[in-house]
Each structure stands twice: as C-alpha cells, then as structure tokens.
Amino acid sequence: MAGAAPLVALARRAADSDIFYSFRRSPMTVAAAAMTLVFIVGAVFAPWLAPHDPFESVTVELLDAFTPPVWDARGDPRFLIGTDDQGRDVLSVIMYGSRISLMVGFAAVIFSMVLGVSLGVVSGYAGGFTDAVIMRLADVKLTLPGILVALMVDGIARAAMPRELHDALAIYVVIFAIGISGWPQYARVTRGATMVEKNKEYVAAARVIGLHPVTIMFRHVLPNVMGPVLVLATLGLALAIIAEATLSFLGVGVPATTPSLGTLIRIGNSFLFSGEWWITLFPSLALVLLALSVNLLGDWLRDALNPKLR
C-alpha cells in the first residue's frame, strides 16, 4: 500500500497534466501513438504474435514462395499478405523486420543523444576554447551528409574486419554509423539550452556553495535542458529508422539473412516488375507508417513542450 500510493499520485498527476490534456485533444497524435504502439508491440512480441517464424527452416517451404495476398485467387489463407521469394510469410517478416528497425533506431538515437548531449552541456557550460573546439567539430560533421558517413563507417568496418566477424557485428556497425552522424544536432540544441540555463540564478546559487562544475552540469543544468532534446530524439528516431532501411536497401546494413524492412524492400524490388508487387509494397507501407507515426509524435511533443504555442 505504502509503495503504491506515490505511484497512484504520480499517475493522477500525469493524467491531470497539461501535456496529457494536449495529447487527448489531438486525434492525429492519439492515432500516431496507437500506430507506434502497434509497431512496438508487434516487434517486441513477434516470436509469439507472428503467424510464422521466418527463421525456422522447417516451416519455411520454398514451395510457398511468391504466394500472393489472400484476396488474390492464387492466395493462401496461411499467408495474409503473401510470401517472398524464399516462401517466408511477408507479415511475419515485417514484424521481425520492425524489431531490427526499432532496435537499431532506438540504439542509434540513444548513442547520438548521449554523445551529443554530453558534448553540448560541456560546450555550453565551459564556453571559450572548449566550446569552440566542440562546435567546430560539429560543423565539420554537419557538412558531411549522414548517409555518406554511415556508408564510410560501414566501408571501413568491412575492410578492417574478417567477413564472419563483420556479419556478426553488422548490427552494431549500423547503430554506430547512424548514431555517429546524429550527435551534432543534439550537441547544438543542448549547448544553446545550457547557455540559457547556466546564467539563471539557481546555477549561481549552486556555485556559491562551491559545487564542482561537473556536478552542476549534470545535476542542475542537464534536467532542465532535456525538453528540446526529447523532441529531437523522437524526430531522430524516425530518421534513424529510415537511415537503417536505406543502408539495408543499399545492401550495406544488416546482412541479407536478417530480416529488416530495408532488406525486404530490396528483395521485393527485384520482383516488382515481374508481378510480385506485394513483397516490396507492404514493407514499404510499414516503413512509411512507422516513420510517419513517430514523426507526428515528435511534432506534437515539440508543440506541447513549447510554452509559446500552447
């Protein structure tokens, strides 16, 4: 009972908060959140929810390859939206693929967020020479297109590692490649917010009692600059998911044996003109829906956290 009381109070406060109110008032946002939730649940629980296991060679029959969706005359009720060239159920592959897409997306965003926010807080709080060095680095990074950097990282990783090792580590390489290209945005936003916060009197009050600058940065300043960073992270998640799909589509992302939305689209692409449109259409739709939903959530969050637009 004693443990539940604060939780109940917290839930009540959340339900009563302005953010939740603005959420409920926007049907588009509610729909986007629902869609995102469907993807996350479908991805996380894919092994239990998916009608087939696309990795289990016992159940995957080459005979089932190129089955169209059920509403087609040649359709098979076992495969709702058809099968791919290897006889895997497209719906199941999408669910497992979203798993990879979301995991890479989240991990890449967290990676660039941690890196960017740390550098941004230090840059904004220290100022001067440190600030100049970090910001020039960010400028240099921003002149290179993200996808180019990701390709470069992948190329270097491929050259530096034996093939088996690269395949085993491919997913981490992708996460690193996407994450490393995102940090300057976080650093810039955090730096700006930090420069505003550090001149506020609560920071001066902490300095008067002689706290170490690092303590002040992370205990006082950081919690107060996270609002804009969260918005950026949400919007960044959609970008990271698309970036992963792009890399996989280009064949430099996760190995072809691992189902991801990008891989699936690439495979389907080669059968697009021979009539097997469903292999590429459904994963593409899934990708668009997922990215759009996450983006809409990010837009809403940006508006909800901006007191001027409220």
């Binding site: 009197e201 609560y202 001066a204 009050a205 008067v208 002689g210 919690p223 107060n224």
Partner: peptide, 23 residues
C-alpha cells in the same frame, strides 16, 4: 580551501522564479 568560508557566507538572489531549480 574555500569551502569553510563558503559555508559562512550565502547569497539571496533577485528573481525567485529563476533562483530555485524547477526540477
């Protein structure tokens, strides 16, 4: 070396809306 003296002197600021960490 400064700590013992910092304890003995404190400051009150002008803006009560900025001098307390909102979080």
């Amino acid at each position: 070396a400064q700590a013992p003296f910092r304890r003995r002197m404190q400051m009150i600021f002008q803006d009560p809306f900025a001098s307390l960490n909102p979080r």
